[in-house]
Design a binder for these strands. Structure first.
Lengths: 235, 235
DNA sequence: CGGAGTGTTGACGTCCGTCAAGTGGGGTGG
DNA sequence: CCACCCCACTTGACGGACGTCAACACTCCG
C-alpha cells in the first residue's frame, strides 16, 4: 500500500538509470541509503561540471544528457578523452584533483555524491566498490580503443569508428538503418579524434559523396543499413 | 623465534614488491592467504604472457622485469597501450577475454592469480578490491595522458614526454642527471608514441644534436641535469 | 534583414610516413 | 682472435595525409 513506511517511494526508485551505473549493484533497501547522500544537479548546454585541476570533491552519475571530458595543454591544444551519456559514471580519480574537465554538451542532469560520503558507502556495501571496479575496467578498455584510434588509424577510420560507437550509445534504428543525433560540434569531434575541424568536415563530406552516410542537417548523421553491416564486418 | 608457526616466513614476505601492487593493501596475516593462491611465473625476453582475445583466466603482479601491452589491427598495425614495470598490476578486464596482448621486453618474473581464486579473495578482503580500484584509477589517468600524447603532441614532444616518464620509473639519478636504460626497441617506442621507427630515430638524433640527451649506446639515454629541469618546468 | 556562429571548401605548406640504402655493434664460428 | 654476418638502428630522398590560413555558405537568432 502506498504511503506506508515499507513501500514509500524515494527518488532513486524511479530513476531512468536505476539499473545502470553504480546503482545497479544495490537492492532497493540499500539504494535507499545511497539515495540519502545523493544530490540532483542540472546543467545547461556548455555548463561546466568541474575543471581539470579542481579539488575532486564530488563524483557523479549521468542521468540524462551528454558530457565531454577534456584535457588542455598550456598552449591551448585540447584533447577530449571521452563522451559520457546516461548511465555513465564520472569522477573516478585517485589524486585529490580532477585530471580532466567535464562539460555538458547538451542539457544534462547528474546525480552527485560527495567523495567522503561515497567512501563511507563503499565501506558499508562492498558490492558498490565491486561495481565501481567494473565501471573502471570498462573505461580502461574504452581508453585503449581510443589509443588505437589516435595512434594508428587514418582520418576516415577514426571517424567511422566513433560514428559506430555513437550509434550504439545514442543511435535510433529504423528500417533504413541508423540515425545519430550528434550532441557535439565538429570541433569536439576533432578534439576527440586528434584531427582539426576542417579535416573532420572534409572527411564527412567524403563519406557523404561515397554514399556511406547522409546528413539531413549538421547535427544528424544517417548510416544506411547495408553500410553499417559492411563496417561491422570490416569494410 | 624463526621456525615457529607464528613467525614462519612465506615467500610474499620477502617479495621485492611487497609494499606495492595489491599486496600493499594487506597485513602479513592476510597476505599469507593471498600467498596461498599465487604462482610464480618466469619469462624470457620476448616471452608472451597472453594474447589479445585469449580467455582472461589469470591476473598478475609484475615482480621484476618489464612488459609491453599492445593491440593489433587486422592489417598488422600495432598500438602499444602501456609499458609495465615492477609493482604494476596486469589483467584487469571486465570481459572474459583480454583486450590486449602482454609480452615481456626483458627477463621478467610475475606473480600469477587465477581470476576465480582472486575473486574469492576480493570478497573476503574488501581492502583488496579497494586497492584494485586505486590501481585502475591510476591506469585510467595514465591512459588519458597517453591520449593527449597521441592526439595533440608533436613527435619531439611525444618523445620527451615518454623519456621523462621512463626516467621516473627506471631512471638512475647521478651527479650529471638521469640515465635511462631503455628496455624497449625503437619499434616499441614508435608503436607506443604513434610514430614510425624512422621518426623516433630521427627525433632522438635531433635531441642529441641539440644537446638535450646523450646516447652512450642504443639502449641508454642520458638527460643532463639542466635539461631535465627545463623540461619539467615546460621547455 | 542582418549579424554571429558553426560548418564547408579551397589553396597551399609541413610534418611525418614510405622506401631504400647505409652503419655499427654484438654474436658466432672458424 | 679476427672475420663475417645479422639485426637493429640511422640516414637520405621523396611523397602524401593532414594542418593552416582564408574565404565562403548555411542556419539560427533577433
Amino acid at each position: 500500500m502506498p504511503g506506508t513506511a515499507a513501500s514509500r517511494q524515494f527518488p532513486c526508485q524511479t530513476c531512468e538509470v536505476r539499473d545502470k551505473v553504480i546503482c545497479a549493484a544495490l537492492d532497493d533497501e540499500e539504494l535507499r541509503h545511497l539515495s540519502a547522500i545523493a544530490t540532483a544537479v542540472e546543467l545547461k548546454a556548455e555548463g561546466v561540471v568541474f575543471h581539470e585541476g579542481d579539488d575532486s570533491t564530488y563524483l557523479f552519475n549521468v542521468v540524462t544528457g551528454s558530457l565531454r571530458l577534456s584535457k588542455l595543454l598550456p598552449d591551448g591544444r585540447r584533447q577530449i578523452t571521452g563522451f559520457l551519456f546516461p548511465g555513465d559514471f564520472l569522477g573516478l580519480s585517485i589524486a585529490d584533483v580532477y585530471a580532466y574537465s567535464a562539460e555538458a554538451m547538451t542539457e544534462t542532469s547528474l546525480c552527485r555524491f560527495s567523495r567522503a560520503n561515497l567512501t563511507k558507502m563503499l565501506e558499508r556495501f562492498p558490492k558498490l566498490e565491486h561495481r565501481l571496479l567494473d565501471l573502471a575496467s570498462n573505461e580502461l578498455a574504452q581508453a585503449q580503443d581510443h589509443l588505437m584510434i589516435l595512434g594508428r588509424k587514418t582520418a576516415i577510420e577514426r571517424l567511422l569508428t566513433i560514428l559506430l560507437k555513437l550509434a550504439e550509445r545514442v543511435g535510433q534504428r529504423d528500417s533504413n538503418g541508423m540515425t545519430i543525433e550528434l550532441p557535439m560540434s565538429r570541433t569536439d569531434l576533432a578534439d576527440y579524434l586528434g584531427l582539426t575541424t576542417e579535416t573532420v568536415s572534409r572527411t564527412i563530406t567524403r563519406l557523404r559523396n561515397e554514399g556511406a552516410v547522409k546528413t539531413p542537417n549538421w547535427r544528424t548523421i544517417c548510416i544506411p543499413k547495408g553500410v553499417e553491416l559492411a563496417l561491422r564486418t570490416g569494410d
